[in-house]
Design a protein around this nucleic acid. Sequence first.
DNA 1: CTAGTTTGCCTTTTT
DNA 2: GGCAAACTAG
Length: 726
Amino acid sequence: MALRNEKSILADLNPEQREAACYFDGPLLILAGAGSGKTRVLTHRVALLVQSRGVDPGRILAITFTNKAAEEMRGRIHRLVGPRAGAIWISTFHSACSRILRREAERLGYRRNFVIYDDDDQLRLVGRVIRDLDLDVKRYPPRMIRALIERAKNEMVDADAYRDRVVDDFTEVVHAVYQGYQRQLLRNNAMDFDDLLLNTIAVLELYPAVLEHYRRLFSHINVDEYQDTNPAQYRLVKLLSEEHRNLCVVGDDDQGIYSWRGADLRNILEFERDYPDARVVRLERNYRSTRTILEAANYVVSRISGRREKRLWTEREDGEPIRYYFAPGGEDEAAFVSLEINRLMKEEGYGHRDFAIFYRTNAQSRPFEEVLLRHAIPYKIVGGFKFYERKEVKDVLAYLKLLVNPEDSVSLRRVINEPKRGIGDTTLAHLEAFARSRGISLWEAVNTAGEVPNLGGSARARLEEFATLIDGLTEEVERLSPPELLRATLERSGYLDALRRQETFEAEGRLENLEELNRAVVEFHSTHPGEGLDAFLEKVSLVAEIDLYDEEEGAVTLMTLHNAKGLEFPVVFIVGMEDGVFPHLRCMDSPESMEEERRLFYVGMTRAKDRLYLTGAATRSQYGERKYNPESRFISDIPESCLFRLPSRLPGAPSLDVRAKAWEEEADPGSPALRAGDRVFHDVFGEGMVLSVSRGRGGMEVAVNFPGVGEKLLLLKYASLRKLDG
DNA sequence: CTAGTTTGCCTTTTT
DNA sequence: GGCAAACTAG
């Protein structure tokens, strides 16, 4: 591939984009509307810095919102400037901080092999601390306290400073838990997500030499999705860029959808107040959507107060009107979407990958999965049941974390009796009391089990056995590669055996997930040879759901509106357009959160290139009961001239296939209607023979052998199976 | 100590 | 309707 010179790089850009890409000295704000080519500007800007300005690639910092965006940007810059792209710091805030902290964390009392706690670990630890303080978890719910701690951290209020926020008994408790929580983190040599930012800031603020080092290192700083930065990120950027002021931020206040995570729109709205001499460039030309979609989107967002006035325009045609279908029920809504996908594929030549279904909450995906499965339309879900949050995956990762960092008591507690090895709550309680009284870590307590009072002989023996297991594996950490370590852990811990022995479908599924984890480790090892287990764990800790998304796959994509940011699809369905669903019930009481919902709607709409569908349902089952929701208020925000309302009773629409449902009910009590040996027909796999029928977690499960396809495990609830006679 | 059952909780979005 | 803590029985 030929590298590009300055002239040819500039040729890719329109005048505004060029202005933004070429402004190198001093603060720059790029207000980039949806689909205005912001990534292009950013990549070209960085390419120019390297290519024509001769800036050392290692001194450019580019912050993206997700790892996926980072990889993509690196790829695009690589195409422009070649392998030098490899040296640029392109990453999320969290990855960049983690990289810095691997070098600097020792100054804060951490060791460099610290582990990163996800929110499940976080919750466990908060709960632990609450219980350790002899508080009632009913009166002080860990989730709530964690939320308050999180918010404080977003606003850079540390555990000590929280004292100023204490106004009553409850905040008093929060303060105490916050302090205990931070102490535990330090003792466990662990950081949560927010700590990655806060500790980086702390290191920079406490050590002038360190600050100086990174200020010199990063001569040019670029931040994407600036509207979604929180006060801590703002501070960090400011610290690093204050001196040379070569700071370029890109964003769109209309797409700010993370205020619940602490993001503060003022960062982008008041950029010029921080940098009065800032250059501001607006990108308003949209290269993605039809005029109709843009007009509607402009209108939806125009009603938001205090925004920066922008008006997207395009040279594209009007295109199709936005189609709106308010179905009688949730199943009809899903059936409509599926039928429409089929129709567009047949009549308009779209492929599976051209379609996306967006919803407000992950829980809404079910009916769509069901109907797509039944119609044999391939689909994939981004998010939802998250791979790295599944029990078995987390269990095994906890083992690995423990090998890297034995101080990690959260992981230790997780695996000490998993699989069951006779170390129960009582034993654990004794260990804990001992650890606390001696001021040693839980792991040290396990290792000195002989001295722990009140322990029975068998408990001691089991603890010793466990300690030997972990010690043995720890010794291998230096010797074995990550894939080998995973294997050894799975085998020697007995985790694999325990699952194999169960011989249930559930265990089967878990084994498959572990196989998947194994693939991930193997892949990591081949792309990062020489990197150790710690590097793998770090990568895993910082993945976002969207990072796992692969657009090349030929499948319909289902995801939340939040995950949709930054993507585009020829055909988009935004489903669940009902008051209480979208906008979400929890956002109804404050005008600010309602505005955020509206921005979220805007984000969803502007993902569509050619066709946009909005659907809702008059009634659906929510939380297990029947709910009746009115049409979403956002529908009335769309100009009627852009909207085509479909009749809610579609002529010729098939009633849903209720066969599977009926079968499940029939199969439930005692005598299954479907038995081993029955011949069945499946829409996708064809004819097959039932091997077994059993009750699993998600309902009745059927194992079927399809000749030529192999054995398939199907959830009767979702499967479209017909029983064949004879 | 474990396994099985009941109760009682919570249901937004995620680096 | 789903999940985890809490309780109960072996």
